[in-house]
Amino acid sequence: MHWRARIDTVDGVLRGAGVLVDGSRLITCAHVVEGLAQVLVTLPGIADALPATVAWTGDWRRLGDRGDVAVVELADALDVPPCAFAPLDLLRPRRGCAGP
């Protein structure tokens, strides 16, 4: 699970978590990076305090808002396997339920 990340402010204040989705990008919640342009990313056991920028945030306004998503981009790509997401065709309704 080398794809798990911690996201801090540039002065070291813990803000939340993220997931490495490729060599240089992570997804996190928009409220984690709210008001920030630069952050530091730590992948426990891999790398500490990597400089990164907030590349995109969803249309987030408050907790519980479905747009609470953001993309953080590392200054330098890592040679670490990213998170492997399940294929969408695995999401099937469970017996007796309308959705997965």
Rank of each mutant, 00 (worst) to 15 (best):
28 T>C: 02
12 G>S: 14
50 L>F: 00
42 T>N: 09
69 V>M: 02
17 A>W: 08
83 C>E: 15
81 P>M: 12
63 L>R: 11
67 G>Y: 14
41 V>A: 05
36 L>R: 13
27 I>A: 14
32 V>I: 01
17 A>E: 15
23 G>E: 15
92 R>V: 11
67 G>K: 11
67 G>D: 14
3 W>Y: 05
88 L>R: 10
94 R>W: 03
91 L>C: 13
82 P>G: 08
93 P>S: 15
39 V>F: 14
26 L>Y: 08
20 L>M: 06
56 W>K: 01
60 W>A: 04
28 T>P: 01
16 G>I: 13
96 G>D: 09
98 A>H: 06
89 D>P: 00
47 A>D: 04
54 V>Q: 06
33 V>W: 03
37 A>H: 14
75 A>L: 04
84 A>H: 08
50 L>A: 11
14 L>V: 08
33 V>M: 01
60 W>T: 04
64 G>L: 10
73 E>L: 03
59 D>C: 02
75 A>C: 14
73 E>F: 00
36 L>T: 01
8 D>L: 11
91 L>T: 13
73 E>W: 00
98 A>K: 07
10 V>A: 05
80 V>T: 05
8 D>F: 09
57 T>Y: 05
77 A>S: 15
44 P>H: 08
79 D>C: 07
82 P>T: 10
47 A>I: 07
38 Q>N: 14
52 A>F: 10
26 L>F: 04
55 A>L: 04
48 D>W: 05
21 V>F: 06
41 V>P: 10
40 L>A: 10
91 L>K: 05
57 T>N: 03
17 A>Q: 13
46 I>F: 11
85 F>D: 00
28 T>S: 15
69 V>I: 10
70 A>S: 04
47 A>R: 13
98 A>M: 09
6 R>C: 03
25 R>W: 00
74 L>M: 04
1 M>S: 13
88 L>K: 09
65 D>I: 07
100 P>R: 08
20 L>N: 08
37 A>Y: 02
11 D>F: 00
90 L>H: 15
56 W>P: 15
17 A>Y: 15
21 V>N: 02
24 S>N: 14
69 V>G: 01
39 V>T: 11
78 L>H: 06
82 P>H: 11
53 T>A: 06
15 R>A: 01
90 L>Y: 00
18 G>L: 09
41 V>F: 07
74 L>C: 09
64 G>F: 02
98 A>G: 02
63 L>I: 10
10 V>H: 01
28 T>D: 05
94 R>Y: 12
14 L>Q: 11
33 V>I: 15
81 P>L: 03
17 A>R: 13
52 A>E: 06
55 A>K: 01
17 A>L: 03
33 V>A: 14
61 R>F: 02
44 P>F: 03
1 M>C: 09
15 R>L: 11
20 L>Q: 07
90 L>K: 06
73 E>Q: 02
70 A>T: 07
50 L>H: 12
61 R>T: 13
95 R>M: 00
54 V>P: 01
84 A>K: 13
41 V>Q: 06
24 S>L: 06
74 L>D: 03
89 D>A: 08
80 V>D: 06
43 L>A: 07
91 L>P: 07
70 A>C: 00
82 P>C: 15
65 D>E: 08
24 S>P: 01
28 T>H: 05
39 V>C: 14
79 D>K: 11
21 V>L: 06
52 A>M: 04
20 L>V: 02
13 V>C: 09
88 L>D: 10
